[in-house]
Every structure is written in C-alpha cells, then in structure tokens.
Design a protein around this nucleic acid. Structure first.
Length: 335
DNA sequence: TAATTATGACGAC
DNA sequence: TCGTCCTAATTAC
C-alpha cells in the first residue's frame, strides 16, 4: 500500500539489482503468463517511477507498467545490492508492519549483521518487501531455506529472476506490457512528481491547477492528475501541517498556501524515500524522533488518530469519509 | 476460523 | 456515490 515514496524506492531497487541484467520471467499465479513470456529472456534497460506507478523498460521497447494499488507489493530475495541512500536512515533496510516495527532486514553475506549505513552499495543476502506491510518472513529476515530460486509463496503474479536476485510481484492493481507511446501517454496524464519534474515548474503547474478548481483541496491532493504520489496518509498530514480545512475549494486556498503545500510535498517525499517511512512530524527532538521512527502511532499528526486529542490543541480528531476514503483532521486547527 | 482492514483507482449509474 | 478488483496481516470470535 505504497504512496509515492515507496514506488521510488522500489524503482531504485530495480535499478540496482535488475537493470542491466537478463531476466527469467514467469507468472506462478497464472494471470500474467503471456506477458511474462514476452519478458522472459530480455535484458532490463531502465526503471522509472512516476507518482505511484513504476515502469520497467526491457529490450526492444517492451515496457512493463506496474501499479501496486492498495495491496500490491514487491518481495526481493537473493543477493540484493542495497542503495546506500535507502539504507542510510535505519542503518538497515526493511519495512514496517502495522505497529511500525522494523521487519525483514537484509543481512550481509555472512548472515550475521545488518547492513551498516555508510559506504558503497553492498551485496546482501536476504529478503525485503517493498511495501509498508509485514512479510511474515520472521524477524530474522533470512531466506535460508537454501533453495534457488526461492519457493513461491502465495499469489505471485510476476516473478523476475536474474542469476542472483528474485523479485516477486503480488496483488498489483495493474501489471501490463505497454509500448513506449502508451507509457508516455500514461505519464503525460499525471500531475508533477517532485522527483521527476523540475520542482519549480512543478510548483507552477500544481498552483495553477489547484487555483482554478472548485474541488475541495482534500480531494485535489489525492487526484493523481493534479499532483503525483500523494495518498491517504500524506493527504491528511499535509492538510494538517498547512492548518488547512480539507473542504476548502482549491481556488479559495491562498496562493502562498498552495505553494507551501507543494514545497511540503517536496520535503516529505524526500524524507520518505530516504527513510522508507511516512514521517510527517519533523522538528522533533532526538528522543521523540526515535519514538516516532519506532512506533507508527507516534509518527503522524492526525492520520489514524480518530477520537484522540489533537497533538496541538487537544481537540478530538475527526474521522469523516471523503470520496469513500477516510479523512482525518482537526476541526479546530484546520479552519 | 471468520471478519475486518488497508497508504488505489476505475467504471457504471 | 456505489461496486469492483486484487492480497495478506491483523483482529474478533
């Protein structure tokens, strides 16, 4: 269930571990057999993330488009080269379960220590799930059942295998082959992504769009044609950080506030890509930061805090449905 | 063991 | 505004 930061991290994993290699592709689940057959034996050329979508280019202009939707995830296994940028925040790579507990760290080749945070990319042996969910792999994170390739567990739509790395895709909303033109068309419909587009241009585009719409800002932030990569968590948090009422029509949001929203997204996305977590409470003292990183419940201003006192004013956080998604906000702070 | 939940998005009314 | 699709962890019973 990733928002934009996760998809960018996944694309980096593909760049590190799959791009430049020939893949063996299969669809153990059986629902992408024809597509996998086309990919099989091709070299991966490029990995690109835009908003919540990832595009993998293969030889001969064959592109794979993947959208994880609510439940999708990539599981990496085998020898995994870890991007030092990605590994830096936690000192090791891994993702969090619902409680925010670090799980499935990658272990080094000796299977002993988790990766250190500094230095060149390193090879590791183990597994990593590229989403925010727990893997059920166990806390030791080891994939030491010996066999290669790893046994298929559950519903694997697509398996991409290099000589040393295994990437399993499960539960995606979209997994399809596309032509370069189709990829371009898809990307063209998306709003600016701070990690793809020039941030200044992005700000102009975002501000111009928002300022001419009568639609509630709470809806606009989730609209991928307005801005790419924001999901339900970042939406709620950004609105609180801006002290903005989610129901304010886009065109009524002060220009400077709209621009501040964009700049906030630039900042939060960068933090998200570095840490792998949606840390929306910055300006914390070291102890509070540690707590926030360790426990998901300590990480947000309003998300998932219905009925709890606002961290700023004590008012009970409201939960309401907006376009059939849960929206959390403080009716006192966000006027 | 079953029900619930989830960080998405699309299409039919 | 609904229903639908996709999967697995967590919670309820």
């Amino acid at each position: 269930m990733p928002e934009g930061h996760s998809v960018h991290r996944i694309a980096r994993q593909f760049e590190r571990n799959v791009v430049g290699r020939v893949v063996a592709a299969s669809s153990p689940q059986g629902r992408f057999v024809e597509g996998a057959a086309v990919l099989d034996g091709r070299e991966a050329i490029e990995a690109r993330a835009v908003g919540k979508q990832m595009f993998l280019a293969f030889e001969d202009d064959v592109w794979l488009r993947v959208h994880l939707g609510m439940y999708g995830a990539w599981d990496f296994a085998g020898e995994i080269v870890v991007d030092p940028t990605i590994a830096s925040a936690n000192g090791r790579m891994g993702h969090t379960n619902q409680r925010g507990t670090e799980i499935a760290p990658i272990y080094d080749a000796a299977g002993e220590n988790s990766l250190s945070s500094i230095g060149a990319p390193r090879r590791a042996r183990g597994r990593v799930r590229m989403s925010e969910q727990t893997t059920g792999l166990g806390d030791d994170g080891a994939a030491e059942d010996g066999g290669w390739p790893p046994p298929v567990v559950g519903q694997v739509r697509l398996r991409l295998l290099t000589d040393v790395t295994c990437a399993d895709l499960r539960g995606p909303t979209a997994c399809q082959l596309r032509t370069p033109e189709e990829v371009q068309a898809t990307i063209a419909k998306l709003g600016p992504d701070p990690l793809v587009d020039d941030v200044t241009e992005g700000e102009e585009r975002f501000a111009a769009t928002v300022r001419r719409k009568p639609t509630a800002i709470g809806l606009l932030l989730m609209d991928q044609s307005v801005v790419s990569g924001i999901g339900n968590v970042f939406r709620a948090e950004m609105l609180f950080r801006a002290r903005l009422n989610p129901h304010t029509p886009g065109r009524d949001v002060p220009e400077e506030t709209v621009r501040e929203l964009w700049r906030d997204w630039v900042r939060l996305l960068a933090i998200g890509v570095e840490t792998g977590q949606m840390m929306t409470m910055d300006d914390l003292d070291p102890e509070a930061w540690r707590r926030a990183m360790a426990h998901r419940d300590d990480r947000h201003w309003v998300y998932h805090r219905a009925g709890l006192p606002c961290r700023v004013c004590g008012t009970s956080i409201v939960l309401e449905e907006m376009a059939s998604r849960k929206l959390y906000w403080c009716p006192n702070c966000q006027r």
